[in-house]
């Protein structure tokens, strides 16, 4: 319980929100969906800055980027027609994999990124699509997903900063993608997330971005795996090689649910299938 919480602020603009955060310094917390805060204990927090009314639930495109506001609920992303086709629908699928509608309705894109639990749905997909995080603060900062995702929120994101937007390069739009989650049940935190995007050019793999999540503390790109695919006319053995490369040498997060060995085996299987399904445009199957 946030026993010292006394005030809620509902800024209408980013500037207003930043001013309030500045004023309270470390005694204020940003809140968007709120799903991770309701049961926390923090004896310092006196004020909540509700950033859900600042017009940050947008989804638009400019010449170079698909721009997604940070307070979009996951359910809105899962349902978005635009995201349903962009890069093979990767972002929509990632958002839809959050297993509870009630949480999808509340959880925001920004929250999923900032908290970045190992099993968070959005970070692997954003990493796959080479997204950039737009941070409002004293100065505006643009941080690539690779740098932002998974790191402690205060190292990248300052106390008086707000993640306002995610930009995905439009050139990713024509990539194919695949996204799979492995867990004990639909509501179980992911043990493995495989998130991939492949670019085809006349039967050859012209680009590959391969990301593993769930199994590692933070979502990671797998360059060794990507190398196994790029420039090749892909056949099943390539997916197997890439999957093996993807899990090679990773630092596995283990809890009581399953052993390290098992997670590695499954990650490899899930990755191989996700790649195969991605390449064949979902015609054959990852589960």
């Amino acid at each position: 319980m946030l026993r010292t919480l006394k005030e809620f602020h509902y800024p209408a603009t980013v500037a207003e929100a930043l001013a309030i955060l500045q004023r309270f310094d470390s005694r204020a917390s940003v809140i968007a969906g709120g799903t991770s805060l309701g049961r926390t204990d923090d004896a310092k927090i006196e004020a909540m800055v509700d950033i859900s009314r600042m017009g940050l639930a947008f989804l638009k495109e400019d010449k170079v980027s698909l721009r997604i506001g940070s307070t979009n609920p996951l359910q809105a992303l899962a349902r978005s027609r635009k995201l349903g086709v962009f890069a093979g629908g990767l972002l929509a699928r990632a958002a839809a994999s959050q297993p509870s509608r009630l949480l999808r309705n509340a959880m925001t894109l920004g929250g999923s990124i900032v908290l970045s639990t190992p099993w968070a749905e959005m970070p692997p997909a954003l990493l796959t699509l080479d997204a950039k995080m737009i941070i409002a603060g004293e100065i505006e900062r643009i941080i690539p997903a690779e740098e932002f995702i998974g790191d402690s929120k205060y190292r990248v994101l300052g106390r008086s900063e707000i993640l306002t937007e995610v930009r995905v390069p439009r050139e990713m739009a024509s990539w194919r993608s695949g996204y799979s989650v492995f867990a004990r049940t639909r509501t179980d935190p992911a043990m493995v997330i495989a998130s991939v995007a492949l670019l085809e050019d006349r039967g050859t793999c012209a680009g590959a971005r391969i990301v593993l999540g769930g199994i590692t503390r933070r979502a990671i790109r797998c360059p060794a795996a990507e190398k196994k695919l790029v420039g090749k006319k892909l056949a099943p053995q390539h997916f197997a090689q890439a999957a093996r490369a993807a899990v090679g040498g990773i630092e596995v997060v283990v809890d009581w649910r399953a052993s390290r060995e098992y997670r590695l085996q499954v990650a490899e299987v899930v990755m191989r299938r996700t790649l195969a399904a991605c390449w064949s445009d979902g015609k054959e199957g990852a589960r």
């Binding site: 297993p99 049940t185 639909r186 509501t187 179980d188 935190p189 009581w256």
Partner: peptide, 22 residues
């Protein structure tokens, strides 16, 4: 349980019962 007999999955985040999709 852990080796001292402490339950590791007391909440429903980790003690799973099936939902409508399962």
């Amino acid at each position: 349980f852990d080796p001292k007999g402490r339950p590791r999955n007391a909440t429903w985040q980790y003690y799973k019962i099936f939902n409508t999709q399962d």
